[in-house]
């Protein structure tokens, strides 16, 4: 499902030199597999997910998703692949505040090959327990409900891979636990692989397969300015 090989990304530092952020020699995720990566803030987890999602272009290396090499694609094709194959749950949810719950989910589907499907959007919102909040705006929802909208949006286009970036970062322990259970269940029901990154030990404890991001990400000292 996901294969990463020799992936490298660096940024220009304020001082002018280049700072290596990500250098992952090899990483793989099987179809339907659920994996968590443990990593401290600033360790490059989000950048790693952005590179997998094609939101950022890698300096070098390969990311292959469902048999398609993302890193070989132009930006427009990466956008298309992301819309077709990926779901992304952001730490801050990143809901569109001017759009209703239903519209947020429809927009999550709208750029994919199947297009916006209101029936499916309602189904998945019902699945996450928001059938009664379809026409509410994000600001009218609790934090937990907003998180569920983000989950529904990420799953709405029937992705093959869901990337979750600190999905419980803004939730209390009870809601964090419930939210993770929901994310994992919904991914399983939709046969989507899940790659979650977090520094929250309680969240990570719910995963059988947890890897330290620092062990797979080794930006070389030569990258640091």
């Amino acid at each position: 499902m996901l294969a990463v090989a020799d992936l490298h990304k660096s940024f220009v530092s304020p001082e002018g030199g280049r700072v290596g952020i990500v250098h992952v020699a090899a990483f793989a995720l099987a179809a339907g597999e659920q994996r968590a990566l443990r990593g401290e803030s600033g360790s490059g987890k989000t950048t790693f997910l952005h590179l997998i999602a094609g939101i950022l272009a890698a300096d070098s290396g390969h990311v292959t998703i469902d048999g398609v090499e993302m890193t070989a694609l132009g930006e427009s094709q990466r956008d298309r692949l992301r819309a077709a194959k990926l779901g992304y749950i952001f730490q801050a949810f990143n809901l569109l505040q001017g759009h209703t719950v239903l519209e947020n989910v429809l927009l999550g589907m709208g750029f994919g090959p199947r297009g916006a499907d209101a029936v499916h959007a309602r189904e998945i919102l019902t699945r996450v327990g928001l059938a009664h909040r379809l026409h509410h705006f994000p600001r009218q929802l609790s934090t937990g409900q907003q998180q569920r909208v983000a989950v529904a949006r990420a799953l709405a286009n029937r992705p093959r891979l869901v990337l979750a970036d600190e999905p419980t970062g803004n939730l209390d322990h009870r809601h964090a636990r419930e939210s993770l259970v929901l994310i994992r269940e919904v991914c399983r029901e939709n046969d989507a692989a899940l790659l979650l990154v977090s520094h929250d030990e309680q969240a990570l404890a719910q995963f059988e397969g947890v890897q330290d991001f620092a062990l797979i990400n080794r930006p070389g000292p030569e990258d640091r300015s």
């Binding site: 298309r80 569109l96 750029f111």
Partner: peptide
């Protein structure tokens, strides 16, 4: 956000 959801430039 729209771009992250797959909207092209």
């Amino acid at each position: 956000i729209l771009r992250a959801l797959g909207a092209r430039r």
